[in-house]
């Protein structure tokens, strides 16, 4: 090193510099962490996306035994007006030991005649086909998962029942999802 560089092992100087260096590094570290947040948060959903995070759906036009697909946050929502048989069939299987993801039908609906689920296969995100499969519910064409009339997984690679969106009945004919 150059001759102008003084001996760096002089006791006092090193100590004070170290304290100052540590304090400054810590302070600057806090600042950098704070400055990083906007760069991370900008990738989160923006205000206009969040504003669409609830949807109101009129269900008065869905006859018994029929189903519609609504969208919420860009995802398909299956709204099925179940028949008495479908409800009975779902309830009969409540304690079936074959259930992969055991859950009672009553725990999956707010009103028995309306089954409302997110229509995305819990395996790898395909959209199951309605009125198909071995259990009268849905069948996912991608890898062959079968769902029953409570949208519970019964056969195939999917690990979970179809998820339920948060929703509530604003009236007998109007539901709010989200």
């Amino acid at each position: 090193m150059a001759a102008t560089n003084p001996d760096e092992s002089k006791g006092e100087g090193v100590e004070r510099r170290d304290f100052l260096t540590i304090a400054t590094t810590a302070f600057a570290g806090v600042g950098i962490a704070g400055a990083a947040w906007p760069f991370i948060d900008q990738m989160n959903p923006s205000a206009d996306v969040l504003a669409l995070s609830s949807a109101e759906i009129d269900i008065s036009g869905i006859p018994v035994g029929q189903e519609i697909t609504a969208t919420w946050r860009g995802k398909p929502i299956f709204i099925r007006h179940r028949t008495e048989e479908e409800i009975a069939k779902a309830r009969a299987d409540d304690n079936n030991p074959d259930l992969i993801d055991p859950e009672t039908d009553a725990a999956r609906v707010q009103r028995p005649e309306w089954l409302i689920v997110i229509g995305i296969c819990t395996h790898l995100g395909c959209i199951p086909l309605r009125y198909q499969g071995d259990y009268g519910g849905w069948f996912c064409p991608c890898h062959g998962s079968h769902y029953d009339t409570a949208a519970r997984i019964r056969k195939g690679p999917a690990p979970k029942n179809l998820y339920l969106p948060p929703y509530k009945f604003l009236s007998d004919t109007l539901i709010k999802i989200g």
Partner: peptide, 22 residues
Amino acid sequence: IFLVILIGLLYGIYRRVWARVD
């Protein structure tokens, strides 16, 4: 406010480091 304090700290370091150079 953060930057004003940081400048103060960095100025301290700068003075300290350069005190060793003619």
